[in-house]
Amino acid sequence: MLDLELVSKFILSNITVHIPKGISVGLIGASGAGKTTFLKLACGLLSPERGNVYTFGKNPVENRSLLGKKMGCLLEKAPLFHGERSVLDNFRELQMVHRMPETEFLKEYRRLAECFDIGKQERELVKNLSFGQRRRAELVAVLLHRPELLLLDEPTTGLDETAKTVLREILQERIQDGMTVVMTSHELQEVSRICQRIMVLKQGTQMYYGEEAALLRQYAPMDCMRLKLSGRLPDLEDLPVKQYTLSGEELKLRYNSNHVTAAEILEHVLRQTSVQEITIKKPDLAEVIRNLELQEKWEDRQS
C-alpha cells in the first residue's frame, strides 16, 4: 500500500517503511520531527531528495490525479474547502470531483454529517464556521468518497470528546473494511486507541516502526505496581526491582518489565505477606516521547 525506501527529504533521513493494506499507523515524535513531511511524501505533494516512495505501487508525484481517487488527505496547511462557499456547496463540489453517484453521495454524506453533527451548519459559509466545526466538516470530506488510504495530520485538533469518539469508531470500522490509515497526533492516547502500529520519528530519524507493545518494551519498560499491604513488609532483596517506596501501608514498586513480570513480583510478595489491593500502571506512548526527549537532551549535553 505505502512503501518508502531509504527516503530523505528536508529533516527526514533514510526512512524505510512498508505499510500494508488495512493497517493503521500512528506517526509520533516531537514537533519538527518530520511527521507532516512524511505524509506529504506519501500523498505526492513532495518529491523525495533521495530514495523512492510508492503509494499503491506507484510514484505518487507522477500519479497525483490517479491516486487522488483512492486517497483522503487531511493536512494542516492544505485547506479542503473554499471559505466563501457554503459547507454543502463544498460537499457538492467534492461529489463531482470524485464522480460519486447521487444516491451513494447522499447515503455517505447523510451518515457522516449525522455522526459528526454538521447538519445544522451545512448552509453556513465555511469561513463563518468555528475551528471545531470546520474540523468536523473536513473529516467528513476526507471520509466521504471511502478512500482506501487515509492520511491524517493531527485529526483530533479542535474536536471535543464526543467527536473524537465518533472519529475513532468510524476509523476502526473502516480499517476493518480494509482501509489503511496513517495519522499523526500529539494526542497519544488517541493514536494508541486507533493505530495498530507506531512509527517514532526523532529529528527526522526513524527510531521505531512496529507494534505498540514492543515499542513500550523498548523505550518505556518501567512499570509501576502499587500494593496496599495488610501484613508485614516483604523482603524484596531477591527481586530486580529498580526502586521501591513505602508510604503508610502502600508499597510502590518500579521495575523493568523486560527483566521481571508482575506475576513474578506478586508471587514473591504473597509468599511473605498479604495484600489488600493491587494496581499496575503500564507506561504509555507519552512516556516513550518523554524518554526520547530526555535521551536527546542527554545526548546534546554529551556532545
Binding site: C43, G44, L45, R64, S65, L66, L67, G68, K69, M71, C73, L75, K77, A78, P79, L80, V97, H98, R99
Partner: peptide
C-alpha cells in the same frame, strides 16, 4: 501561499 494549490493537487482532476 494559502495551501489551496495543495488541495487541487490532491484531487483526481486536471490541475
Amino acid at each position: 501561499r494559502s495551501g489551496g494549490f495543495d488541495r487541487f493537487i490532491l484531487r483526481p482532476r486536471g490541475l
